[in-house]
Amino acid sequence: MTPSPQPPRVTLIAKPGCHLCDEARAVIERVTADLGVRWHELSIEDDRALAEQYWEQVPVTLVDGRQHDYWRVDEARLRKALEP
């Protein structure tokens, strides 16, 4: 039996056409690739609850389900949060 893959540890909450989201995505892609960590992205346009909660903070980064950053992603801080 093959074990199921680990759930994503990082979530990017973003919206289309957001330049800060593009910058955050690039940092998240780089850090998670270096550390072998899974991540995924959610759009506030697809989820009314996310839109209501995070509209003024997008992009928002969650680590292990908890809010980590908003507007900008600090690469060193994200790496530290993902260390074992």
Rank of each mutant, 00 (worst) to 15 (best):
P7D: 10
D46C: 01
M1W: 04
V10H: 02
L62I: 08
A81E: 07
S4P: 05
V31G: 02
P5R: 11
L62N: 13
P3I: 08
R77G: 01
L12Q: 04
G36V: 03
G65C: 12
P16T: 12
W71D: 11
P59I: 06
P59N: 11
E56V: 11
R48L: 09
L42G: 04
L20Y: 02
V27D: 10
M1F: 02
P16R: 15
R72K: 11
A33E: 14
V58C: 09
Q67C: 05
R79H: 06
R38H: 12
V60F: 01
I44L: 05
L62C: 11
E52N: 13
D64M: 05
E41V: 12
D34Y: 03
E45L: 14
P84A: 15
L12A: 02
R9L: 06
R9T: 00
D34C: 00
E29P: 02
R66V: 14
D69P: 00
P8W: 03
V63A: 10
I44T: 10
Q6N: 06
V10P: 01
H19Q: 14
V58A: 06
E52S: 12
S43D: 01
S43V: 00
L50E: 03
E29L: 12
E83M: 10
L82G: 01
Q6E: 02
R38M: 07
R30N: 10
T61A: 10
G65I: 01
Y54L: 04
K80E: 11
S4I: 00
D69A: 15
I44M: 10
G36P: 00
D46R: 11
A49N: 13
H68P: 05
E75R: 08
A26N: 09
D74N: 15
V63L: 10
M1R: 13
P84R: 15
H40C: 10
V37S: 07
A24H: 03
W55A: 15
Q6D: 05
Q53N: 06
R77H: 04
A81Q: 07
P59Q: 12
A49V: 14
M1V: 12
T32K: 07
D34N: 11
R77A: 10
Y70Q: 13
R9M: 02
E23C: 03
L78V: 01
L42P: 03
A51M: 12
E83A: 15
D22P: 00
R25W: 08
S43M: 11
D34I: 01
D46N: 12
R79G: 03
E56A: 13
T32R: 01
E45V: 08
L50F: 01
D69C: 13
T32V: 06
G17N: 01
D47A: 08
D46M: 03
L82N: 03
V10A: 09
D46F: 00
P8G: 08
W39G: 03
L62R: 11
C18V: 09
G65D: 08
A49T: 15
V27Q: 11
A49Y: 04
W55E: 13
Q57T: 09
L82E: 06
T61H: 00
D64V: 03
V58T: 09
R77M: 02
K15T: 14
R30Q: 13
V37L: 02
I13L: 07
A49L: 13
L20C: 01
A14T: 14
